[in-house]
Design a protein around this nucleic acid. Structure first.
Lengths: 116, 116
DNA sequence: TTGACATATGCCTATATGGGTATATGATTC
DNA sequence: GAATCATATACCCATATAGGCATATGTCAA
């Protein structure tokens, strides 16, 4: 078997540095492809291909705007990564116990529904 | 150019599900290879190869113990992933602003040095 | 020292990658 | 409808993967 496709999941999609750069850029808001091409200093076809991967994994959305295509971050698709990595923080952060306690308090003191 | 090596960084190493499983298992403490082989239901050579990748990226450490080799998690090597993903949480978690405020308070109220 | 156990490495193959370059598709303007 | 701008796709290539299998290395026991 070969390596899993880059489009297999967010983990694989985001393993590529260029694609992380794209997401970092999109964190600042919706952007057309050419903006990203300039920011990355990479060829336009390459950027388009990276965007396709990110789109297939659901980490970005597209919207037509005249002759441009505006790409926008969909951070929720990154949640699995966050969820997986989160527990390991305990292993390097000494202050985590403290933070953990605070979070517990937050959950108890307030009865809100929440998504994380 | 081809895809970056799995040993290029933690992002690439951890893109493989089996390797994440291994790290999950090691979160419970030091384990010999055969334990992992059983838990993963994968061939022993395959597990050894995954462990090599994880070791090259610094995410696990090894220690000789008789004829066994005990592998142990080194979570700190996962910190870059955590650091990168963290800001995106804002984009899906409505409660993040609240949590953010709490963290700010923690930093101000206490003058400790800390590593996260 | 011979054999059993624990782990690592070598070799094989199918597969997909990321960048480069050329070109197709699609929208806008003149 | 022709020229132009914006983006996507097709094709080429070097590269390394993950698993399967055989085997090397290393350690302990009898």
């Amino acid at each position: 078997m070969a390596r899993a496709a880059t489009t297999a999941d967010a983990f694989n999609a985001v393993a590529e540095p260029r694609r992380r750069q794209i997401l970092d850029a999109l964190a600042g808001g919706e952007r057309p492809v050419n903006d990203l091409v300039r920011q990355l200093g990479l060829g336009q076809p390459q950027v388009s291909k990276h965007l396709r991967v990110l789109r297939e994994v659901g980490v970005v959305d597209v919207r037509d705007h005249g002759r441009q295509r505006l790409y926008r971050l969909n951070g929720r698709a990154l949640k699995p990564i966050h969820d997986w990595i989160q527990p390991f923080q305990r292993s390097w952060s000494e202050r985590f116990d403290e933070l953990d306690a605070v979070l517990e308090d937050l959950k108890k003191e307030e009865g809100h529904a929440h998504d994380d």
